[in-house]
């Protein structure tokens, strides 16, 4: 909190100046927390915040997108009250408590013209490391490997699952967000990529020409993720500083995000609610 307090005098002066021109609500009466981090999670948590604000008048929850690492950084430096991350905490990231609010699977996707529908663990590794270069025996359909950019939550989960280093991957194209990966694969019959399972399911169901590949015979669906049978999945987390469930508004909001009240919302954002 100390860094927020340090900023206060300047913003107070500026705020007072701005109040001259507008109906200035008494900001001291409004309890406010800031949530920053994963761009994957931000739309979901922003909606959760909206719901929470509607139920609890007089509070404000500011949600800012900016990546998992930033969420973790902001939470541990107290720049934000809560961080959002779409991957597990790494070795050096100490002093934080994580709260699981939902699950997400990572699906391998290809163009729907591609006859392949199932890959084994080793085949995936072979393709992404460039050892398997062609889709067919005739060696005329060269595989286009679509990888995610360094640091993305999906990349880290993918690497961890297949026990690869980012230097091992022989990428032909690199993309950022999920939608970019989906549009890239749907525009290229030779491409293979990996994205958030809910997004892929949604797009495939709505006519985008992509297919979700089964991995080691397990089909990639939100259902298999919820059942725990689909092998590549990740938790979507809120992280807070310290080792206990935080007190006050922060704690209440974290609790709310883990309650059954938001399960429908999680589903509408194409993620899998955590059921105990």
């Amino acid at each position: 909190m100390s860094s927020l307090l340090k900023l206060h005098p300047v913003s107070a002066v500026f705020g007072a100046f701005l109040c001259l021109n507008q109906s200035c609500t008494d900001s001291s009466a409004v309890e406010k927390i800031t949530v920053t981090g994963s761009s994957t999670l931000a739309p979901l948590v922003a909606d959760m915040a909206g719901l929470f604000e509607a139920k609890n008048p007089g509070i404000r929850i500011d949600v800012q997108a900016g990546g998992s690492s930033r969420g973790i950084l902001d939470a541990s430096s107290s720049l934000a009250d809560i961080g959002m991350t779409s991957r597990n905490l790494k070795a050096g990231e100490n002093g934080l408590t994580s709260h699981r609010i939902a699950l997400d699977g990572i699906a391998l996707i290809v163009h729907s013209q591609n006859p392949v529908s199932d890959l084994s663990h080793d085949q995936v590794i072979s393709i992404f490391t460039g050892k398997t270069e062609f889709w067919n025996e005739g060696n005329d359909r060269k595989i286009v490997v679509v990888n995610k950019a360094e640091g993305r939550g999906t990349l880290e989960v993918f690497l961890k699952h297949f026990e690869l280093d980012s230097a091992d991957i022989d990428a032909d194209l690199i993309v950022g967000e999920n939608q970019q990966a989906i549009k890239t694969v749907s525009g290229n019959p030779l491409a293979i990529g990996y994205v958030s399972i809910g997004a892929a399911e949604y797009e495939a169901a709505n006519g985008t020409p992509i297919r979700l590949l089964a991995v080691d015979g397990v089909t990639a669906t939100s259902k298999t993720v919820a059942e725990g049978t689909y092998p590549i999945s990740r938790p979507l987390l809120l992280v807070t500083k310290g080792h206990a469930v935080p007190a006050g508004l922060t704690g209440r909001f974290v609790e709310f995000c883990q309650s059954t009240a938001v399960h429908e919302l999680i589903g509408s954002h194409l993620y899998v609610p955590v059921r105990e």
Partner: peptide, 22 residues
């Protein structure tokens, strides 16, 4: 509610919808 509020600009909104929101 004021100039000190965070507010999403339309281009950011377009970006988020096109890239982040299936």
């Amino acid at each position: 509610e004021g100039f000190d509020d965070s507010g999403r600009a339309i281009s950011v909104h377009i970006y988020d919808l096109a890239m982040n929101v299936p």
